[in-house]
Design a protein around this nucleic acid. Structure first.
Lengths: 154, 154
DNA sequence: CTGAATAATTGACATTCTCAATGGTTCGTG
DNA sequence: CACGAACCATTGAGAATGTCAATTATTCAG
C-alpha cells in the first residue's frame, strides 16, 4: 500500500476543488447528511423529517394553517395536504376549522401526536448532538445565528 | 388594517417555534432557498444545481470517477450515470477510461463544457453574492468553515 | 488461480416535485 | 349590498428524483 506518498487521494482532490468552497454546495451536503441521520433516527417512529416537522409545529401549539406550513417548510400546498392526510389518518394531528378564516385549516396535535412527538424529538436530539459534536461548542450558537440569516433572509 | 396590535402574525409564531431553532431545520430551509436561487440562475444555461456541480468538477480538472462523484454529491451511482449521460450527450463532458482502473470512468470536461461552465459560474456567483449579502462580511469565512465541518465530518 | 469485492450500468418501483384546475371563502371597492 | 379578484385547500396528472436489486467487467487478496 502507498504509505506517505503524494497525499492526493481522489477524496482530497474533490475536497480541495473550487466547488467544495462554495457555500451552496456545503449547505447542500451538510443538509443531505443531517437529513439522512434524522430520517434514520425517525424511522423507528414511523416518521420522516417532513412529517416530523409538521408534527413538531402542531405539538408546539403553533396552530399553523396549511398555507403557513407550505411557506415555512418550502413545500407545495398539495404536498402539505398529503403530509397532513398521513398524520391525520394515524390520529396524530387534527384539522380544525380556523374561526378567523373558514377557508383555512389550523393544525392541532392530538394527545397521541404529542406523545409520539416527545419520543421522536428525543431520538432526533440524540443524533443532532452527535452531528454537532464536530463543531466546537462555542461556535454552535453563532452557526445557528448565521444559518438563520440564510434561512430567513427577510 | 391592524396597525400595531399583538405582533403575533402567523409568520412570527412559526419563526419563534422550537423547530425554527433546530439546526437541521435551518440547514434544510437555507438549502432550499439557495437551491432555488441557483436553479433559477442556471436555467438559462440549461443546467441545474446537480449538473452544474458535475460540470464544475470536470472543468476544474479534478478528474473524478463516477463513484467519487456519487459519494461527494451524495447521490446513488445510478443517478450519476443519468447525470453524466445528459452532459455527455451535450458534448460538455467525456468519459475517459481510468488508466489505473479499467472499471472506472474518469470525467473530463470538453472545451465547450469549460466555456459553458465559465458562463454558468458567473451566473451562480451573482446570485450567491446576493444571498450572502444578508450575512455580515466578517462572518462569511467563519460560516463557510463551520459548514465545512458539518459537510465533511470525518 | 479462484472467490470476494468494486465500478458502472440497467431496470423497476416508490417517493417527491411541479402545475393546472376546482370549489368554497374572504376581501376590497364601487 | 353586490361584484369580481384574490386566497385556501384539494385533486389529479406528469415529470423528476430517490432507492434498490441484478448484471457485467474488472480488480484484488490469499
Amino acid at each position: 500500500m502507498p504509505a506517505e506518498r503524494t497525499r492526493s487521494t481522489g477524496r482530497d482532490r474533490l475536497r480541495d476543488s473550487a466547488l467544495a468552497g462554495d457555500l451552496s454546495f456545503l449547505l447542500a451536503r451538510a443538509n443531505a447528511l443531517a437529513l439522512a441521520a434524522a430520517n434514520a433516527a425517525l424511522a423507528t417512529h414511523g416518521l420522516k423529517a417532513r412529517s416530523y416537522s409538521v408534527l413538531a409545529l402542531a405539538a408546539d401549539d403553533v396552530r399553523p394553517t396549511q398555507r403557513e406550513l407550505a411557506e415555512f417548510l418550502r413545500l407545495d400546498p398539495s404536498q402539505v395536504v398529503a403530509l397532513v392526510d398521513g398524520l391525520e389518518q394515524r390520529h396524530l394531528v387534527e384539522r380544525h376549522a380556523d374561526p378567523a378564516d373558514r377557508r383555512a385549516n389550523v393544525l392541532v396535535a392530538t394527545d397521541a401526536g404529542r406523545a409520539l412527538f416527545a419520543r421522536a424529538r428525543d431520538a432526533v436530539r440524540a443524533v443532532g448532538i452527535d452531528s454537532l459534536s464536530v463543531v466546537p461548542a462555542q461556535d454552535r450558537a453563532r452557526l445557528a445565528r448565521l444559518l438563520r440569516l440564510l434561512a430567513f433572509p427577510d
